[in-house]
């Protein structure tokens, strides 16, 4: 909190220390949202860091500074992802993006296909769901925060978060059941 206050007051050393502290977390968020091998990881992470500093004025210490940074980074990275998808769609390259995402860093063994498709479905849902549900889903399923941590990060009651997640996870399951690439997994569970 003193570092954040110092950064807001224009203390360059405090700002630098704060950025050094939270940037690894921001980078982790960006890699999870847009993909670890995406060429824009650095640009988006920098955009997130700038947004984080600009948002510091609103930080009132209700959550930890790392959680606050994660939330700002999540929103910024999700916006960047939506922008990129829209740009790719405008250039008729939507299928290329999907192929990139499914392919990951190289040819995947069959055992990994389901997990990669699951990641892709979760990211796509985060683009498509209403904002509160998308944020809860991303914090829980993509960033790996528990429900109580999501409630703390969002400043929302736990039951509200639970309800948002219930809807979002139901949508995830519905998408998985409709995806032919996950047929084996779905049939196994049935």
């Amino acid at each position: 909190m003193p570092l954040a206050r110092g950064a807001v007051d224009g203390d360059v050393a405090a700002l630098r220390t704060l950025l050094t502290t939270v940037t690894p977390n921001i980078l982790r968020v960006v890699r999870r949202v847009i993909g670890g091998s995406h060429p824009d990881v650095e640009d988006v992470a920098q955009e997130c860091a700038v947004e984080f500093v600009n948002a510091l004025k609103r930080f009132r210490g209700e959550s930890s500074i790392r959680h606050f940074a994660a939330r700002v980074a999540l929103r910024t990275a999700m916006n960047a992802r939506r922008r990129q998808r829209a740009a790719k769609r405008n250039h008729g390259l939507a299928t290329e993006l999907e192929a990139d995402e499914a392919a990951g860093e190289g040819a995947a063994p069959d055992a990994l296909v389901a997990s990669r498709v699951g990641v892709q479905l979760a990211r796509e849902l985060c683009d498509a769901l209403p904002a509160p549900q998308a944020e809860a889903l991303a914090l829980h399923c993509v960033l790996g925060y528990t429900m109580s941590e999501v409630a703390s990060i969002c400043g929302a009651p736990l039951e509200t978060v639970r309800s948002r997640l219930r809807s979002a996870k139901a949508a995830l399951v519905a998408h998985a059941q409709a995806d032919p690439r996950l047929r084996d997994l779905v049939e196994e569970m049935a």
């Binding site: 993909g35 091998s37 997990s115 699951g118 990641v119 993509v142």
Partner: peptide, 10 residues
């Protein structure tokens, strides 16, 4: 399956 894959990516 999603969480370990994302951990690997990040």
């Amino acid at each position: 399956q999603i969480l370990p894959e994302l951990e690997r990516e990040s």
